[in-house]
Computed example of a mutant assay.
Amino acid sequence: MNDTKQSTEDLAILEQLNLDYNNADQASDAKRFSDFVADDFIVQTPGVTRNRDEYLEYIAKPRPFKDLALREVKI
């Protein structure tokens, strides 16, 4: 396989993973979202710090927004 074909295939895989991550968040799919975060995952938002399990519990609840969109994605 040549480098160009490999790069094109790799890019397509990464783009799909990025979409899956976004879709899992929008759909409150904590099971799928868990595939993307490490065991030692920590997220900090203004005033809140959550570990992996806490964040997955948060993700499992209905999201407060609709139509989450990716813009200007660069992979």
Rank of each mutant, 00 (worst) to 15 (best):
A27K: 11
S7N: 10
L56G: 09
E15V: 13
D29G: 10
Q44I: 15
L56I: 08
I13M: 02
T49V: 13
N23R: 11
I42G: 04
D39I: 00
Q6N: 01
R50Q: 14
L11E: 01
Y58G: 00
Q6M: 08
L56C: 06
I59L: 09
F36C: 06
N23Y: 10
S7T: 09
D67E: 14
D39L: 01
P62H: 09
K66T: 15
F65A: 13
L14W: 00
D35N: 13
F33G: 07
A30H: 07
T49Q: 06
S7V: 03
T49K: 12
R71M: 07
P46M: 08
G47W: 07
V37S: 01
E57L: 03
R32P: 07
N22S: 11
P62Y: 04
K74Y: 03
A30Q: 07
A60C: 07
I59D: 00
Y21W: 14
A12C: 08
K74S: 04
A30S: 15
A30D: 13
R32W: 07
A24E: 04
Q44F: 12
E72G: 05
K61T: 06
R32D: 11
Y55V: 05
S34H: 10
T49G: 06
E15H: 08
Q16N: 12
Q6L: 12
M1H: 08
P46G: 10
D35F: 10
L68S: 09
T8F: 07
D40W: 08
D3N: 15
N51G: 01
V48E: 11
K5V: 15
N18Q: 05
T49I: 10
E9S: 07
D3E: 15
T49L: 00
L68V: 12
F36T: 06
K31C: 03
A30M: 07
E9W: 00
A69M: 12
E72Q: 12
L11T: 03
A38C: 02
Y21N: 03
V48C: 11
A69P: 02
Y55W: 15
T4D: 02
R71K: 14
R63N: 10
F65S: 09
P62I: 14
N51L: 04
Q16F: 07
E57W: 00
D40I: 07
K66Y: 09
R50A: 12
V37F: 02
K31L: 15
K74Q: 06
D10I: 00
R50F: 03
R32V: 15
I75D: 00
L17H: 03
F36S: 02
